[in-house]
Write a protein that binds this DNA or RNA. Structure first.
Length: 584
RNA sequence: GCGCCCGUAGCUCAGUUGGAUAGAGUGUUGGUUUCCGAAACCAAAGGCCAGAGGUUCGAAUCCUCUCGGGCGCGCCA
């Protein structure tokens, strides 16, 4: 409908241009749903925009547009208001056709092809596999999934990937932590390093290993700690100390070190995969940094970068002059000790993404890493790839609130730490919905009391209740031995003239454009807001009119409308990944 | 110190390339059920869009500055 009116206006101004009354016309005509019912159903500010170049008063321009505006059976009246807005009033059931569309297109309603099957690799979450996922990660998982769903819905081909950072120092710290816990289980007297991973899960992994291999990896505590530098509590440096512990573990364990390392990694990854599976988050690929490093892609990348002329040596290290591409300082690729940085591997990973034939690569990451985007884009550009093909979406932190006060989030504190605990407490649907109902770059307060409220306060139940209510109406119809005749309903859509029905038709017809907007801006919250609106329109309708009435034509028409509402709710739920309960 | 993000109702937040009287939820107050599910609906109250300048027909939105909050600025990942 919006499109229809835009076309009419477009035709009108083209004609005026042909008549020499307008010099330049804008690339597109802006028509939007009027906020105030007194302003009709749609409004356009086109006359205000054209006024300057036409050197006329806005209202005069509007007059001229109206005079040449093509007639349409959908329009009841068109008028000029305020400083020069053109308000369009539709005939009472101009929108009713949308019911027809929804009921015939079903789950296809809202899909389109503007993505033109472009391939988009979306990397999200990608946390270090050094522990279970916590509540902050949940937001990444939910946001990433829904963004992908939206992109697929408008015709892109997404590929969902988790980059497993299994190659860095953090992993060695984990392996060492597990080993020390394991030694304690063997009966050794272990002083746990200040900088080691202290979570319960480390002990669990150690137990698993001990159950499996008994004392196979046992070394006396005396050997482990002999001649190590002092740890932080003893006045030393915890970083230096933990590195020394790792070195010692490698030396004492030899080949067995890798077994501990792999078992630790495997345990964490199994946990993360299960967590994601339970949360309904699907990945097409789990991309291992270690496997990446094992290929020649890093070497090839470095060669290409050198050929680009933006690489130099200084202080024994190899540098990339990212400042040539707008970064604030140059970055090290290969350290003086010969070891490549995380950055180097990551550039290679990104090169690989594009070599795999993706048109676009989206990285969803924590906003605390925003300083990282400039250098990686710089590297991509240096490699001859258009940096606009790489997009970074930032996700802000999550703060939990319980009883109005901030819940403890530290690893030590007993309250929520993990995503799994949150899901168990509030349920997957609520967690999913809450995570995406705020703009991603907005810092989020997660109110646990609200999330757990099985009542009117909870926005998830509000929209699910609308769905269940509609299902209930159809059950009621059957109980009264009545049939719903869809064809008959569609034939009588012109009977839907109540204000609540108009409102509902209006909201339903907004759905496709809302999906496009949400997808193209990577904003799932637009969908949650829309569903809230739709549910509210339905509840208002429900409370003011009976659907199951004597008049068969009216009854079928109303049932058709309500069925269309149910379909759109379902489509939205599917995109969000929440359930559609037929009763609650 | 430099850079990025943010500041909208008591609270949590929308506000789509600048548009008409800035909107929801929640909370507060009052009302609605012989009727398909009251997890609902209706109504009232609640605002100097952090502050000050500027751009123009028109600013929550764009520019500059100030204040206040978050996050970055490793040969870590």
């Amino acid at each position: 409908m919006k499109q229809h009116i835009e076309n009419l206006v477009q035709q009108a101004i083209k004609q005026l241009q042909a008549m020499g009354e307008l010099s330049e016309i804008p690339a597109y005509v802006q028509v939007e749903a009027a906020k105030d019912k007194q302003h009709g159903d749609f409004a356009s500010n086109i006359a205000l925009i054209l006024a300057k170049s036409a050197q006329k008063k806005p209202r005069e321009v509007a007059e001229r547009i109206l005079q040449v505006l093509p007639a349409s059976p959908k329009l009841q009246k068109v008028e000029i208001a305020g400083p020069g807005f053109i308000n369009f009033f539709l005939v009472p059931n101009a929108m009713s056709d949308v019911v027809n569309q929804i009921l015939s297109q079903k789950e296809q309603f809202g899909r389109c092809k503007i993505g033109r099957e472009k391939r988009v690799l979306v990397e999200f979450l990608s946390s270090n596999p050094t522990g279970p996922l916590h509540v902050g990660h949940g937001r990444h998982a939910a946001y990433g999934t829904v963004v992908c769903n939206l992109l697929d819905e408008v015709g892109f081909k997404t590929f969902r990937e988790y980059y497993v950072n299994d190659a860095g120092r953090q992993m060695d710290i984990l392996a060492a932590s597990v080993w020390l816990r394991y030694l304690a289980l063997c009966g050794e007297n272990i002083e746990f390093p200040a900088n080691a991973y202290r979570g319960e899960y480390v002990i669990d992994i150690a137990k698993t290993i001990h159950d499996l291999h008994q004392d196979h990896f046992r070394v006396s505590a005396k050997q482990v700690f002999a001649d190590l530098p002092p740890d932080e509590p003893q006045g030393g440096d915890k970083e230096i100390y933990i590195d020394a512990v790792i070195e010692r573990a490698r030396k004492l364990l030899g080949d067995k070190y890798q077994i501990i390392f792999d078992l630790s990694l495997e345990n964490i990854m199994v946990d993360i995969r299960n967590d994601m599976k339970e949360f309904g988050v699907h990945y097409d690929n789990w991309f291992s940094e270690r496997q990446l490093v094992a290929t020649d892609v890093v070497d090839r990348m470095l060669l290409k970068l050198k050929e680009s002329g933006h690489v130099y040596e200084r202080d024994g290290a190899l540098w990339f002059s990212s400042t040539s591409f707008g970064d604030v300082k140059d970055r090290v690729l290969v350290r003086a000790n010969g070891i490549r940085t995380y950055f180097t591997n990551d550039i290679s990973y990104h090169l690989d993404k594009f070599e795999r034939g993706n048109d676009l690569a989206i990285t969803i990451m924590g906003s605390d890493h925003h300083g990282y985007t400039a250098r990686i884009k710089a590297a991509i550009e240096a490699l001859g790839i258009n940096p606009e093909r790489l997009l970074h979406m930032l996700v802000q932190f999550v703060t939990l609130y319980r009883g109005g006060v901030q819940a403890q989030m530290s690893t030590r504190g007993g309250n929520f730490v993990t995503l799994r605990e949150l899901r168990n407490e509030v349920g997957n649907d609520v967690a999913r919905y809450f995570y995406v109902m705020r703009k991603s770059e907005q810092h989020m307060d997660f109110d646990l009391d609200l999330a757990k409220a099985q009542s009117n306060e909870n926005p998830v139940y509000y929209i699910q209740y609308a769905y269940a209510r509609i299902c209930s109406v159809f059950k009621q119809l059957a109980e009264r031995q009545l049939q719903f005749d869809e064809a008959n309903g569609l034939k009588h859509l012109d009977l839907l003239t109540e204000p609540q029905e108009r409102e509902l038709l209006n909201t339903l017809s907004r759905y496709p454009e809302m999906i496009i907007n949400a997808a193209l801006h990577y904003e799932p919250h637009q969908l949650t807001h829309y569903l809230r609106d739709l549910a509210a329109d339905f509840h208002a309708y429900y409370n003011s009119h009976q659907f199951i009435v004597e008049d068969v034509g009216l009854r079928d028409a109303r049932m058709a409308l309500v069925m269309a509402v149910r379909q759109v709710l379902l489509n939205g739920f599917n995109l969000l990944g929440i359930s559609a309960p037929e009763s609650m």
